[in-house]
Design a protein around this nucleic acid. Structure first.
Lengths: 215, 215
DNA sequence: TTTTTTTAGGGGAAAAATCCCCTTTTTTTT
DNA sequence: AAAAAAAAGGGGATTTTTCCCCTAAAAAAA
């Protein structure tokens, strides 16, 4: 069962581009295209199911992103909102969060970022890579337990690589993971080989590029 | 004219500690100490002026931080809220933002962090260092004009930090930059201090977040 | 013009990371 | 049931990083 997406954006080209990108993700399908909030509300009456996630632009005629987010929070609170905006402004981001957005990414993001954002919202209820301080993100991820993504990495390796991307020493990482520094050594060596790197910095960079490390 | 602060926290020792710290900041004065939200509302009726910023704890008996934030947003929206919490949890942070908080810092923050948070809220209406991704923060700062990131780093430091984000050793970086490893040491130490990190990985991550390193 | 910053460099020591070599137990896959 | 992978751990050595201390010329700022 694919997760259903609605796109709310006044630019037809943008909508179609997004639809193409999203439909290429096997786990998602675009079920609605709307040119503003009013259109979205109108179309909702004509469909049998509601979207799971709404991709929401901010600057739109008639009913903009802020109004739309507010409407969704009040009338369809089960729908998650991922704001897709050109505005890299903290004030806007915070305003959107308060209106109930579950994530906020920039329009010039790469498709992988969009996909990761959608995954995070679907799996954890919110997305924050682009938004919130990664320190906080990792804390939460750990408490949530499960390790999604990378089958290349084992669970413990995933935990480790996230912590490797920090200001901690291996000894401190070992303490956080409740294991010995020598065990950490095993993960490190295994990952160095897998990712063909020679240093911890190289490992972290490779992890970031591979999408295993959230910044 | 000093900015007036109210402290809402159920621990007397914490309140007094905070009051001491804040009164040592020349631009702020503590005008109220309250042990929970109810106490705050009650005390508000007895004072002629309202506080500008409220330092708000979350876990409190009778009326906790969430309820208090909601009350303030509805009844005294002009009062800014800085949440001071032990909870490093994204869910809590997002909930607090939605309830109208202007900032969120951890209780184990240093006094300078508290002061910076207060300054940011006073001057810009919000504080986000601890909360939002520094990359966005710096981007915003740059577009606002002052404190543009580049001037923080000297030319050679900029070259160095980019090369630090690689699989190379410092000796190899020194060769690439046609200088001695000891000179590289100077850049490294200067940047560690500037960015408040303790390791090369920390440096690289801070550089990425600040937008100085392109990956 | 004086002061500060940048650039360039060094000595010496401690801590951390890296690289080899291993063993054992449990879990998963074939 | 056998093989492979994951998880946990260790010994011991080398290299790299990190942390103090320090000098000095050139450039930029005050």
């Amino acid at each position: 069962m694919k997760t259903k997406i609605a796109i709310i954006d006044d630019h037809t080209l943008m909508r179609n581009g997004l639809q193409g990108i999203i439909n290429a993700f096997s786990e998602y399908e675009v079920m609605m295209q709307c040119e503003n909030g009013k259109d979205f509300i109108h179309q909702l009456n004509g469909v049998s199911s509601t979207p799971d996630i709404v991709l929401l632009d901010i600057n739109m005629p008639e009913m903009d992103g802020f109004e739309t987010a507010e409407w969704i929070r009040i009338h369809k609170p089960e729908i998650k909102i991922l704001v897709l905006s050109m505005l890299n402004s903290e004030e806007v981001i915070i305003r959107m969060l308060r209106l109930g957005a579950s994530g906020y990414i920039l329009k010039d993001s790469k498709p992988e970022v969009l996909r990761m954002a959608l995954n995070n919202i679907r799996d954890h209820g919110f997305h924050s890579n682009e938004l919130l301080n990664p320190r906080l993100f990792f804390t939460l991820q750990q408490s949530n337990g499960k390790n999604n993504g990378a089958s290349v990495l084992s669970n413990r390796e995933s935990e480790f690589i996230q912590l490797a991307a920090s200001d901690l020493t291996y000894r401190e990482i070992a303490e956080k993971m409740n294991t010995s520094p020598k065990t950490i050594e095993n993960y490190r060596e295994a990952l160095f080989e897998k990712l063909e790197v020679k240093s911890r910095v190289g490992l972290v960079l490779a992890g970031i590029r591979a999408g295993w490390i959230k910044i």
